[in-house]
């Protein structure tokens, strides 16, 4: 089962989710929170950390129970486990800060339907050792948080002239209102995707040219 990849814990088991298989910029998963809660950097960070916690906790538990759970009921079992940890996060954020909880709104509860988490449970955690599942979930969570921060930082700087709530440009800054509204999420997501894709494209083009140069 799943023997195509090494079962050793390597740097790559972590870094894969962060960059090469980044859940947002490469796999385009979990778009709902990506667009909805990235209107400020702090919201993006909180959402990313909450999702990372759910990814790691559910990944660990599912990996531990992977020989126990019958195939026929695995999805139901995964969802119950994921929902449990989402509820834990929900209560914890309420206890930490009500303002943050109100800012994130229903999207905390909606982590349960974030396809990254069920996808990783099904495709990875349920087939690997706990250590691997945990490290990979951390990588995926870090990748998700990184992507959310990419959006949140740009949207907060342009939309509020601030970063993590600290004023950057003084009182006379004219905020770009559209950036904290839903269209801003789409525009900035599109811009980041464009940037990453353009970079990838250019690297490929360059390596192709180098090969040709060597051949010719």
């Amino acid at each position: 089962m799943g023997m195509n990849k090494s079962d050793d814990v390597t740097w790559d088991s972590f870094a894969e989710g962060l960059w090469r298989e980044n859940p947002v910029f490469v796999m385009l998963l979990g778009m709902c929170p990506v667009l909805a809660v990235t209107n400020s950097a702090i919201n993006a960070l909180a959402m990313g950390l909450a999702t990372t916690f759910v990814l790691m906790a559910s990944g660990l538990l599912i990996s531990l129970m992977r020989h126990l759970i019958p195939k026929q009921v695995r999805i139901a079992a995964f969802i119950v486990i994921i929902a449990t940890f989402v509820t834990v996060v929900d209560y914890s954020i309420q206890a930490i800060s009500l303002d943050l909880y109100n800012a994130l709104g229903a999207f905390i509860q909606l982590i349960v339907v974030n396809c990254i988490i069920l996808g990783r449970a099904e495709a990875y955690a349920s087939k690997r050792r706990p250590a691997l599942a945990l490290i990979s979930a951390l990588g995926m969570g870090a990748g998700f948080t990184f992507a959310l921060l990419c959006l949140g930082v740009v949207r907060e700087i342009l939309g509020a002239g601030a970063l993590f709530g600290f004023d950057l440009f003084g009182a006379n800054f004219e905020p770009w209102v559209v950036m904290v509204l839903p269209p801003g999420g789409f525009i900035i997501l599109g811009a980041w995707l464009l940037l990453f894709d353009w970079r990838k494209h250019r690297t490929q083009l360059r390596s192709l040219q180098e090969e040709r140069g060597r051949a010719g």
Binding site: I69, P70, A77, A83, F85
Partner: peptide, 15 residues
């Protein structure tokens, strides 16, 4: 199946 699901549900409830 019942035992496993029940067990998971109990664990979840406890948490």
């Amino acid at each position: 199946m019942l035992i496993v699901l029940g067990g998971i549900a109990m664990l979840s409830g406890f948490l």
